[in-house]
Amino acid sequence: MIKKERQTPEINSSSMADIAFLLLIFFLVTTTIANDKGLFLLLPPDPDQLEDMDIKIPEKNLFKIQINSADKLLVENEPLADVMLLKDMIKEFIMNNGRDPLSSDNPQKAIVSLKTDRGTTQLRFIEVLDQVKGAYHDIYAERAGVSNQRWRELSEDRTGDPEARRLYDIGRGLLPDGKPEIPMNISIAEPTQIGG
């Protein structure tokens, strides 16, 4: 009598790799890496509803940045070659507080105006907007005692974390009437048609 040992049959797992490949290809084809980060902007109200256009803003409280259709920069009526210098110039303008009589009176009145041409490329516009927002973010971050990156994370979620809310208010400054001490006054002007 030959006792044959029953071998438990093993399931052939050679097709595991095939199944995995199929799933992988499915996911590669139907998904994308999400990109939901960017530069936030608050547009001014409907132009048809703006009645009080008679507010005269003194030249000193306005930091003019102009870009022409060749993507060349004109900052405060002087050409600027290197975009990267713009951030420090803006920071100086906002935090002037009357020191330089030709610059802003205080951060509440300081307005950064960005005027493009219809032919300006989006790339240039984003570069300049990045500098402008960078200036404001740096100021806020310094006042709140955090890094620029941490500031941006704080400003994303202001409803949840009370600590975040506190730092946010310190950074922007909170006046008794609820308005910020340093509001982000960015004005995107109507683009010119000239081309030059």
């Binding site: 960017g38 530069l39 547009l43 219809r118 032919g119 683009p191």
Partner: peptide, 29 residues
């Protein structure tokens, strides 16, 4: 917005968004 898209079209879009009272804008970068 694509890097090469011109500001003219984009600001037209911005104007329409202002009229439609959708003032919160994000430029994906």
């Amino acid at each position: 917005v694509d890097s090469d898209a011109k500001r003219g079209l984009v600001s037209d879009v911005e104007l329409q968004l202002r009229k439609a009272n959708a003032r919160k804008l994000l430029y994906t970068t």
